[in-house]
């Protein structure tokens, strides 16, 4: 990918709001959360998606875009997008548990966040180009 900052924001928000949400809807009831109710689980998984979107737009994407400036090609290899999931996941977990006070457990969080990240990653590397044939020529901008 060769994103611009605007393209990064739009792509992140669009994919999280479509594939990310759909996947969360499907996978949440299957998470090993013990005695937590379905509504409690949905609250925390949706909060995780919302935080990934919000923190991503405000913090991570500008950081990635800055780091990208050190690359001659001004590209962002697929591997980077995949590995971004590690610091992003860690931050979202701590924000959920320690700041927002959700009762999140590590294993279900890892399953939900990890699989959602993978779905988003896969959407960014192919299917999104089918939805918008101009996407890849516009630095990831959809609008």
């Amino acid at each position: 990918m060769t994103p611009t900052l605007l393209g990064r924001w739009q792509s992140r928000l669009f994919v999280l709001a479509t594939a990310g949400l759909l996947w969360t809807l499907l996978v949440t009831p299957l998470l090993p959360v013990g005695f937590a109710t379905v509504s409690e689980t949905y609250a925390s998984t949706f909060a995780a998606i919302g935080l990934t979107a919000g923190v991503g737009v405000l913090l991570w994407e500008p950081v990635y875009q800055f780091l990208q400036q050190f690359r001659w090609e001004k590209d962002w290899p697929a591997m980077f997008t995949l590995l971004e999931g590690i610091p992003e996941g860690a931050l979202v977990f701590f924000l959920l548990r320690d700041v927002l006070g959700f009762d999140v457990r590590l294993v279900p969080f890892l399953i939900h966040f990890g699989t959602t990240w993978l779905v988003v990653f896969l959407c960014l590397h192919g299917p999104l180009r089918v939805v918008s044939v101009r996407w890849r020529f516009r630095g990831g901008r959809l609008l």
């Binding site: 990918m1 060769t2 001004k74 020529f137």
Partner: peptide, 17 residues
């Protein structure tokens, strides 16, 4: 050394813009 004829972002990234 460069991957392609142009830096990659010349096709559709910030260099193109």
């Amino acid at each position: 050394h460069q991957g392609f004829n142009w830096p990659k972002a010349a096709w559709g990234g910030q260099l193109k813009v």
